[in-house]
Design a protein around this nucleic acid. Structure first.
Lengths: 147, 147
DNA sequence: CTCATTTGCATAGCTTGCTATTTAAATCCA
DNA sequence: TGGATTTAAATAGCAAGCTATGCAAATGAG
């Protein structure tokens, strides 16, 4: 039956499934928090500030996606948008004290979930897994670039 | 800097990134089509019919998610819901001729993208990669089960 | 200096995913 | 048999992702 082929050896299917499980596992631990702000937390945790564009690039999402994420985070008091005096189109985004607090909690949860997941791998397999994923990401980004 | 730690060795981050790239790569090839119906296509491609619940379980998504996907597919003329005479709460879902046509195209695209992605791995690594992903999925499902 | 182009964000509108809740049919048990 | 429970699906409402498009500020070319 084709379905078993797909379920077992479709990299896209398995990757999507794993990604949803990762997100839900983190969200279950955050009690009300979501996993969307995670890349922003990681980028700004040390007190730095950067533009929406830079955040989108770090998070590897499109600009409107990051705009929406930052809107929700601003609404929830997690980030601050400070107008850039040198470029009136742009703003520097930084974490509020509440944002830094949430970032720490999110970091703890992410590390715990990462450990639970990679405990399913032998220690010597873990770096291999990351490397394989990075190579697959590279191949798909190259494919996207050469439409 | 913590960000590079996250980008390079957070399994959740890398998995989410790869999953989005897979979906976009398939969608780019489908010209207007989306990747959401894929699990339904795979499950019903041979002319079979099953309930929404069974489809949700095969696709590993929640029931309302599958309900929405089937609503869109029904709207687009891809599936048919046939009321079950033995259980008036339930319907058997099957592909229309157009649905089977789209399923074939989606299958071709999925296989091509899968090939492009796994070409980044050595042949002997591919089964290892699937196996690792399956083990990680198992670990995260166990974690979800034991809240 | 002015106008065309580029750039940074915002907005609109869609899909896919989730949780929580509701509705109605089927089933179970006393 | 009749009420309680379970089950299948629908609905509401939100997050996070995308593409396409619009707008205003900055930049560059003549």
């Amino acid at each position: 039956m084709q379905m078993s082929y797909v379920r077992e050896t479709s990299a896209g299917y398995l990757t999507n499934w794993a990604a949803r499980l990762f997100a839900r596992a983190i969200e279950r631990r955050l009690a009300g928090g979501n996993s969307g702000p995670m890349p922003v937390f990681f980028a700004l945790q040390d007190g730095g500030a950067m533009t929406q564009k830079a955040l989108a690039q770090l998070a590897a999402v499109e600009q409107p996606t990051m705009a929406n994420t930052l809107n929700r985070m601003e609404r929830d008091g997690l980030v601050l948008r400070t107008p850039d005096p040198n470029d009136r189109r742009s703003a520097q985004v930084s974490l509020t004290p509440l944002g830094r607090e949430r970032a720490k909690a999110a970091f703890v949860s992410a590390i715990e979930v990462n450990r639970i997941a990679t405990d399913a791998l032998k220690p010597e397999e873990r770096e291999v897994f990351y490397d394989m994923l990075r190579r697959i990401i590279g191949a798909l980004e190259r494919d996207a670039g050469t439409e």
